[in-house]
Design a protein around this nucleic acid. Structure first.
Lengths: 148, 148
DNA sequence: TTAAAAATTTTGAATCAATCAAAATTATTT
DNA sequence: AAATAATTTTGATTGATTCAAAATTTTTAA
């Protein structure tokens, strides 16, 4: 987020409310958080803050493009303030940790083999794998292969 | 799905139950369905079928790799029987329709700019855009730009 | 500066998607 | 055919999210 949150909100004709500003600050400090985590952080700062306001604001801010939503399998929706650069994500299959990785190109950075007549505007990429921490845990504890 | 469902289940040491077979058939006929839709189709065939069994089976079949789960934003989890070929998806921002598109390569077909020490095994790609139907609807009804 | 209007928050309820767990039933193995 | 294991059914519950009315806050206009 390169400009002040207040200015960003003004540019989108959104009121500068305490909850909204606290949410943006919380999300800037804790990227890839879900609504419950954001609520916890905001609630520590504003005791009267409600979960409903968090959901309302997340929906509004995503709609405006101020906040980005991602939805990895196995997790609730996650949010981040890093927007506009078409970056991608890496998610650990073991600990569910989420990390950013820059994109090579502008959106859409890829084209489908068959676009089915779609006008494509974005290629959302999630890389799945195992993070260094979980690789170390896995090796030191021996393999726990799920039989299937 | 190139081999018979019965054989596939046997290969994975799974019982051949009526609900399970009906689910696979329903999903083969209706790819990219959510659990509710799958339940509707199965329920038409087996009146006593329960939603719990649908969820249990989906979880089991996804874990075995017989069924694939995708989770586009704004929708519940969707499922499909087309597995093992690392294909990608195109989702319409307007009608939420989901379509397959072949992958250029084997998994992982892409590499992140910075892998953060991860061992990457898959690049999940969702192309977002507007489908031909919704493009036509949009144009004939005039633009409804959301101010934001 | 004050009042009005609009936006947002709070509050409590509800819905949706999915899970939990015990009992019953079905499929497989012996 | 009986025993065992897997699965389904049933009803309850949880987590994630939405709904809606009333209250409060922010912005705008006078």
């Amino acid at each position: 987020m390169k400009i002040a949150p207040e200015e960003l909100l003004r540019q989108h004709n959104l009121s500068l409310t305490a909850v909204r500003l606290a949410l943006l600050e919380a999300l800037h400090a804790n990227p890839h958080s879900d609504a419950a985590r954001i609520f916890d952080v905001v609630h520590n700062k504003i005791a009267a803050a409600s979960k409903q306001a968090i959901y309302n604001n997340l929906n509004t801010l995503v709609e405006c493009g101020i906040v980005r939503e991602i939805k990895p399998k196995g997790q609730a929706s996650l949010y981040e303030t890093r927007t506009g650069d078409n970056h991608h994500h890496i998610v650990c299959r073991s600990c569910a940790g989420v990390f950013d990785t820059d994109c090579h190109d502008c959106a859409p950075c890829l084209t489908p083999k068959d676009s089915h007549g779609f006008v494509i505007d974005e290629a959302e990429v999630i890389f799945w794998g195992v993070c260094p921490s979980c690789q170390n845990n896995h090796n030191s504890k021996g393999k726990n292969n799920a039989e299937c």
